[in-house]
Design a protein around this nucleic acid. Structure first.
Lengths: 352, 352
DNA sequence: TTGTAAGCGTTATCAC
DNA sequence: GTGATAACGCTTACAA
């Protein structure tokens, strides 16, 4: 009949009401609309509650009754631990937090769990809305969001017909990075790649970066060596840098699809005694906080603002509005990790 | 009677049941105990569900009925945006995420909101348990947790009678840091402080660090200049470093209560042209990931493991066990930012 | 100003 | 293998 009965039954609003000989509605009002009852009665209710150990309306029951939970879910396209290991993701989440906090909403972090099919955690979570951050288009989370008819905001992925999308100019940023290296005389460029997804389910924003690199090179004699992807961690950056330089010793500059990757590469180069930018230039993407101290040239994106916009969009959706999609700009930040290509920098080079 | 009626009534398990002429219980079984009904009926239920647009049991209703929400709340002692700006906090949360994810639980991030009195967000959140991370002992969140009788784990704060607490050897780590500087010949030390809380509501782990510094100096002729606190950000580190060096020019080493603070100080010193460790030694606390690249001597704490332990503890609590408190070790990591005190390093100093 | 009653959508138990 | 029933704990329009 009822679920496994707990050792002691918990105190409910009804208990408080019974104690005072009033109705449960009055107890509810004491908490939710103080103006609906006399201050004196309210005090008595609160006193009785304290006495009985009633700590206010049960959040679950209240949410069910009211039809909203006060929670915004964020699904991150990689395992949850990575969300915290990745400074860009942290920055993003911070922005979201700032936005939703203003309306008193809380943030629920949902894992992505690619393989789970229809049993996405997003399906079993009590949320009023969902932010899908860098999830592939075939993510069960998206299907779930659709099926449940949840207000949904897409971040860093391909636009979807009817959904609000927040993103950045991924391609333009990448193009600027590559052009910068070309202008410095580099002709043999390596790309440290982030996971591109499958062609059926591509990570659109990552592909856009690759396309941007390629666009910059179009019409030039320069060549691009693209690595496979080994993930998003600094360790991946290290391994990719090693592989790339072993396979293509002629490369004079590294285009990294994220600062995290770039920082891994930087470590490898320092360890190998290859001067940056003397022997090799390195350019990142994102401009995470630590990149300034490392003097890394990179493509800056307004990551925290992106989170803020995503948060605002979900808030608007919850109010019943139809917020527009937003595409934020990127900007090349030139620092010390990029310089003239070795050949081009040779002083007093004889002009032929 | 019922709440503001939505434009279209949502599809419920009852609708699906009605469509098929079966009972709601059967629909429920189709989702929750497939073995309780014939595969054939189950398929019909699922088909009808799809047809009607029923996307499975409502999480809220299910949670209410089952008496648990599948959510672990984490309250962070500072505003929520900071939780993401702070690498140590991110690392910690990552550990928690890893632990709770294994049981299929999700993480709800709750703001601290010191001033709110009894209306702590933790009181209105549907959670099965709470992790209080670096919250002061007078936090409304703690009061709320107690009042609601929620399984609670305390992290980085003073032990509380009956609650499970996860922490590190804050004092021992600090002591090792200070001793290290003494051994290098430093006699005039500055401390960049983290918020110590009020004496009524102290941040116990921060106080423990200060006490550790002091303990190391006891009996020596060395002196400690302690700054006020300006928060936890790198900016605070910068301002504190400037203030301290202006007020006490004789200081030859900086003991920073966190790496974030230390990194701010490092920037100021680099900008001011003061050599590290030539003119000034700097020691941090935490060993966040970026500190290795910056060659910062620091006190390493197993932050991610701390999160893992906290997650495991809450899991155990939810199973009805009584997990023990855990105190993890710290370890001094000597890198390049600490060296002999300027006087002591003078080469060929005449021996008197 | 307070009480009544009808759910919110689900699921565990028991009977069939 | 399937169905009726009774909660879970609360909120809110409406009546008194």
């Amino acid at each position: 009949m009822s679920p496994a009965r707990p050792v002691v039954r918990r105190v409910t609003s009804r208990d408080v009401a019974a104690r005072l000989g009033v109705s449960a509605a009055t107890v509810s009002n004491a908490y939710n609309r103080p103006d609906q009852l006399s201050p004196e009665l309210r005090d008595r209710v609160l006193a009785a509650a304290r006495e009985l150990g009633y700590s206010g309306p049960d959040p679950l029951a209240r949410s069910l009754r009211r039809g909203r939970s006060g929670v915004v879910g964020v699904v991150y396209g990689s395992p949850l631990e990575f969300a915290f290991a990745d400074p860009a993701a942290s920055l993003f989440l911070g922005g979201v937090a700032r936005a939703v906090q203003q309306e008193g909403l809380n943030l629920l972090l949902l894992p992505h769990l690619p393989g789970t099919g229809a049993l996405s955690p997003a399906g079993a979570a009590s949320v009023d809305g969902l932010i899908l951050y860098a999830t592939p288009p075939d993510s069960p989370a998206l299907a779930t969001a659709r099926a449940r008819g949840l207000p949904t905001v897409l971040v860093d992925q391909a636009p979807q017909q009817d959904l609000c999308r927040i993103g950045i100019k991924d391609g333009a940023g990448a193009e600027a990075a590559a052009r910068h290296l070309l202008e410095l005389g580099h002709r043999d460029l390596g790309v440290l790649a982030l996971p591109l997804g499958t062609s059926a389910a591509p990570h659109a924003h990552i592909r856009a970066r690759l396309d941007g690199y390629r666009r910059a090179l179009r019409g030039s004699s320069a060549r691009l060596q693209v690595t496979r992807s080994l993930g998003t961690s600094p360790g991946a950056g290290k391994r990719l840098a090693r592989e790339l330089l072993a396979a293509h010793p002629g490369v004079t500059a590294l285009l990294c699809m994220s600062d995290v990757l770039a920082q891994g590469a930087l470590q490898v180069l320092a360890g190998a005694g290859r001067g940056v930018p003397g022997q090799l230039s390195v350019v990142g993407y994102d401009d995470i906080p630590s990149s300034a101290a490392l003097d890394l040239t990179t493509v800056q994106q307004p990551t925290a603002e992106k989170g803020l916009e995503a948060g605002r969009a979900i808030l608007a959706l919850l109010r019943g509005e139809r917020p527009p999609s937003v595409t934020l700009p990127t900007q090349l930040v030139v620092r010390g990790s990029s310089g003239p290509a070795p050949a081009a920098r040779a002083p007093h080079a004889p002009r032929v």
